[in-house]
Nucleic acid binder design. Sequence first.
DNA 1: CTGACTGTGTAACATTTGTAACAGTATAAG
DNA 2: CTTATACTGTTACAAATGTTACACAGTCAG
Lengths: 209, 209
Amino acid sequence: MLEVLRENFSHLFEEELMVEISKVGMHLKVNKGDTLMELGSSVTHIPLLIDGAIKIFRLDDDYREQILYFLERGDTCALTLNGCLGKAQSEIKAVAEMDSELILVPAQYMESFLKYHSWSRFVFESFNNRLVELLEVIDSLAFMKLDERLYNYLRDKVLINSNQLLEITHNTIAQEMNTSRVVISRVLKKLELEHRIKLHRNKIEVIEI
Amino acid sequence: MLEVLRENFSHLFEEELMVEISKVGMHLKVNKGDTLMELGSSVTHIPLLIDGAIKIFRLDDDYREQILYFLERGDTCALTLNGCLGKAQSEIKAVAEMDSELILVPAQYMESFLKYHSWSRFVFESFNNRLVELLEVIDSLAFMKLDERLYNYLRDKVLINSNQLLEITHNTIAQEMNTSRVVISRVLKKLELEHRIKLHRNKIEVIEI
DNA sequence: CTGACTGTGTAACATTTGTAACAGTATAAG
DNA sequence: CTTATACTGTTACAAATGTTACACAGTCAG
C-alpha cells in the first residue's frame, strides 16, 4: 500500500505520513454502482481516493436524494471528517461513479495526524473544496432553472468520466436530481432542440462549446 | 480588548492565544443593517463574534440573494477562512441582523495560530458547523416547499432574536429568500390561516408549538 | 391636514415543475 | 422467435411558484 500511496499522494503528503497511513489504512477496490455509505451509517473511516470517482448525495427522510459533488483522485470527503468530529450520523450516501480504488483510514487517526503539516493542510483544503462545492449546489438550487441545472449536471459528468458520451438513463438522472423521469425527458428533449446535447438510447452526448 | 476576549472566549481559547489575538485584532461595533462584506470584496480579516448576530447570504450575478445562516456569539465565518486559504473572492454578503460587536483578526494569522490547539479546534469546529448549516440550506431548497421553508426561516429568526415577535416586512423576507413579495404575502397568509403565525403591520408573530 | 411613500391584500394570469396514463421501441432472456 | 422488461416519447392535466396590476391602509414630512 505504501507504493500506491507514493504513486498517488507524494505531491500531497510527506513520506513519514504515508508510512503511518500505510500502517493503519485499508486498501479497497469498489465497482461502479457500489454504495460505500448509507444513510446514518456511523462514520468510522476517512476515505482517500486513489483512482476513479465517488458521487456524494444528500438524502432526506423519504429517501429522496440530491447529488452534491464528486470525489476524484486525491480527494477526501470532508463530510466524513465532519462526522468524525461532530459524532453526528451523516445523512449522506456515497456511490461509486465508476470502478474505484481507495484507502480507508480509521477515523481515530484524523486528529493525531494533524501534527503532520501536510495532513492538516490536506484536511483544510478538503474542507475548503467541499464548502465551495456545496455553495455551488446552493447556487444551482436557489438561482437556476431545471434546464441549466440539468446541463451543468451533464457537463460535470462529462468531466468526471472524461467522455462526452454519457451512459446513463433518464430515470437515473431524475433520481439523482430529485425530480421525475418525465420531467427529465422533457427537459433533455428541449436541450436537444437547442443543439446542446444529442439523445440516444441509454446514452447522452454532450456537445461542448 | 483582552478583557472582552476573556469574557467571551475563555471557554474556547487558551490564555496565551487570547493575548496574541488582542495584540493584532481590531475591536469593532456595527449597527443593525450594516453590511460587513460585499460581493467579491477581498477577504482580509477573520471575524470573531462577541455579541449580536450576523446573517450570511449567497449572491448570484444578478444580485439576487439567498440567506445561508446566522453567526452568533462565539462563532466565526468559515467562508472567510475559506477565502483566506483559497484566495478566491467569496461571493457572499454579511449583514448585521442586530447591533453587534466583533473582533477582526488579520487573515495572515489564520495559519500561524494553528499551533495553538484551541485555535485549530475552533477552526475545525467552525468549518464543521458551516458544513452542517449549508447542508440544511440544501435540504431546504431541494426537498421542501416554500411554506415549510418560510416557516423554518421565521423560526430561525425567532431563535436568533430571542423574540417571538419579529420586526420584518414581507419585502425583506422575499429578498432574503430570493422570491417575490407577492408570493411571500400569499404564503404568510396561508401560515396565518393554519394558526402558525399572526400577521401585523411590519411585524410577524410566530406561534411556537 | 395633505400628499407622498411604504407595506399589505388580492385577483388574474403566466411559467415552471410534477403526475398519471399510455404507446412504441430496443434489448435481453428464454 | 417470443415474451418480458427497461427505456423513451408524448399528451393531458395538476400544483407550485412567479408576475403584473391595482386597491387600500398606515406613516411620515411638510
